[in-house]
């Protein structure tokens, strides 16, 4: 085992992920209207963040790796921001 977390912490992370999966399934049983998608995405993002930090060892990496890892999130933000700006500023006859 290297210094990237003990078995105990990895199992705890796994239990957390299982719990979040239950939350995902549970949330899907209720209709939150316009919040359906945001809630599902928030839960999924938390799961992805936990995986990236612990299973992909981002927690133990240096600044340059963080720059590489977080830049795609910036691009994702750009993709969504520009596309949504287009959709909500169209003039429909």
């Amino acid at each position: 085992m290297d210094n990237h977390g003990s078995y105990k912490s990895l199992i705890n992370i796994w239990i957390l992920l299982m719990f979040l999966t239950v939350v995902t399934v549970g949330a899907a049983q209720f209709d939150f209207g316009a919040w359906n998608v945001p809630i599902a995405l928030i839960i999924a993002s938390v799961k992805a963040g936990v995986v990236a930090l612990h299973f992909m060892h981002l927690k133990h990496e240096d600044g340059l790796t963080w720059v590489f890892a977080s830049y795609p999130l910036f691009l994702l933000f750009l993709l969504i921001a520009f596309t949504v700006t287009d959709m909500f500023s169209r003039v429909v006859n």
Binding site: F82, T85, D86, S89
Partner: peptide
């Protein structure tokens, strides 16, 4: 978006 100026994309985003 400069590939999409005549696609129906909004004027605002076209300018950007």
């Amino acid at each position: 978006g400069h590939h999409m100026f005549v696609s129906g994309q909004s004027k605002l985003i076209n300018v950007i």
